[in-house]
Amino acid sequence: MKEKIKEFMESNFLFEFNDEVTEKTNLFTEGYMDSFGFIELITFLESTFDVKFQADELTGNKFGSVEAVIESLKSKGISDV
């Protein structure tokens, strides 16, 4: 599932994970994802993992990196990532 998330990010945000851009990289502050890209990411996560995030769950940079996304999914009870 982690690979699926990374694949989504790579193909939708036009970059590749490597030594410089890693699972820890904040894609927001490093300029790979903008607020519209963020909406696309949330839509993808909601449909792929069958979850629904509330507005207050989307604040505070909880989806900036692959690691953060996986933590957020875990907090929703999805741990098979």
Binding site: N12, F13, L14, G31, M33, F36, G37
Partner: peptide
Amino acid sequence: KKLINRSALKR
């Protein structure tokens, strides 16, 4: 190009 968000280039 560093100043332009990669995801924005799709649009």
